[in-house]
């Protein structure tokens, strides 16, 4: 099960708030009714009024609950969508933040990532490739092209200085990578994310769900280890923290796995032997399966069921108040 807009679940506290408002109003209204009708507080009328208020409010709260779930876009299962594509456009989304200089993936994470990218290029000679580098911002550095030499020129000099903005914004990188695919192309599209997963940006499932919608899988590769490593700059010095101790960086697999899973791609560890070959196999497998079948599977949205329940609850809530419960009062 996946949620397209999980942040909308933050609206759920509105449900008890609506119930509390109704309770407060009922207490206040009961006094007014006693004055208006002139009936004794123990009269049946007030009992019925309580029941009507209870059910009407209950169903309104149910409406609110289901409507919020509908807006959050739950999906489970898959449905097929027709797709007529052949060939492959692949964008390398390369993390060039300073944490990628950590030497726990020898010689360092960034060089290991570049080697993996080179291996993928060799394994897919017919594909077109592009590179988006990200740090504090995602920046296209090589547009999608058949000219592998242009990518090689970039890889030869790839470093942390390619992007000026400090930080690590994976969300911005993913956005830039999506925009890097040329429009009007009938090729399959995929992203190879090469990172240690550390991100200061707000990584939301919603950002990656656009990849799922457009049928672009993210094949994420995590470099580094969970045990952590210091970061050594090209001049040999260590990056120090505010406490004057060396900064330690760790692989954050969770984010990378989420990006891969939501988009329909796969996650691989940067320490796997034969990494490039495995990546190539996965990418080829994805392109071939779609190319042969002529369709792709997308998450089946289930909002309609929730919305139907919401509208039904709202209807009952209105009926409970509008229909006369007894002929004579």
């Amino acid at each position: 099960m996946k949620i397209g807009a999980p942040w909308l679940l933050l609206l759920l506290p509105l449900v008890p708030a609506a119930a509390l408002l109704a309770l407060w109003n009922h207490r206040r209204g009961r006094k007014s009714l006693i004055l208006l009708t002139g009936r004794a507080p123990g009269d049946d009328f007030f009992g019925r009024h309580l029941v009507v208020t209870f059910f009407s409010t209950g169903f309104f709260c149910a409406f609110l609950f289901f409507a919020i779930l509908a807006a959050a876009d739950f999906s489970w299962g898959r449905k097929t969508v027709e797709e007529d594509r052949s060939g492959l456009d692949l964008v390398f989304l390369l993390d060039v933040s300073r944490s990628m200089l950590a030497p726990d993936a020898p010689p360092n994470r960034l060089r290991a990532a570049v080697d993996a990218a080179r291996g993928v290029m060799q394994g897919l000679p017919e594909a077109r490739f592009g590179i988006v580098a990200f740090k504090g911002r995602g920046v296209p550095v090589v547009p999608v092209t058949e000219d592998h030499g242009a990518l090689e020129s970039f890889f030869a000099h790839a470093g942390s200085g390619v992007v000026a903005e400090p930080g690590t914004r994976l969300d911005s990188g993913l956005e830039a990578a999506l925009a890097a695919f040329p429009s009007g192309s009938r090729r399959h599209r995929a992203v190879v994310l090469l990172s240690d997963g550390e991100s200061q940006g707000v990584f939301t499932d919603g950002g990656v769900s656009r990849y799922a919608q457009e049928g672009i899988p993210v094949f994420a590769v995590g470099f580094g280890g969970k045990e952590g490593s210091t970061i050594r700059l090209p001049d040999g010095s260590l990056i120090m923290g505010r406490n004057r101790r060396p900064v330690v960086t760790r692989l954050e697999e969770k984010t990378l796995r989420a990006a891969a899973e939501i988009s329909g791609g796969a996650y691989l560890s940067g320490r796997e032997p034969g990494l490039a070959g495995k990546l190539v196999d996965r990418i080829q497998g994805f392109a071939e399966s779609r190319g042969l079948s002529g369709f792709r599977l997308v998450p089946a949205g289930r909002y309609r069921g929730f919305l139907f329940a919401a509208l039904g609850s709202l209807g009952v809530s209105v009926l409970v108040r509008s229909v006369r419960w007894k002929r004579k009062d």
């Binding site: 397209g4 807009a5 909308l8 609206l11 509105l14 609506a18 408002l21 109704a22 109003n25 206040r28 209204g29 007014s32 009714l33 208006l36 009024h49 009507v52 309104f60 409406f63 609110l64 409507a67 919020i68 509908a70 807006a71 876009d73 949205g301 909002y303 919305l307 709202l314 108040r321």
Partner: peptide
């Protein structure tokens, strides 16, 4: 490009507006 979320959110907002006006502002009793 699906647009249902925008309509659902608009619907929720408008129905909540009605609810709050009736119960809080107008103090609907029945």
């Amino acid at each position: 490009e699906p647009l249902h979320r925008e309509f659902i959110l608009a619907g929720i907002a408008l129905l909540l507006l009605d609810y709050v006006i009736r119960l809080w502002l107008l103090r609907e009793v029945l």
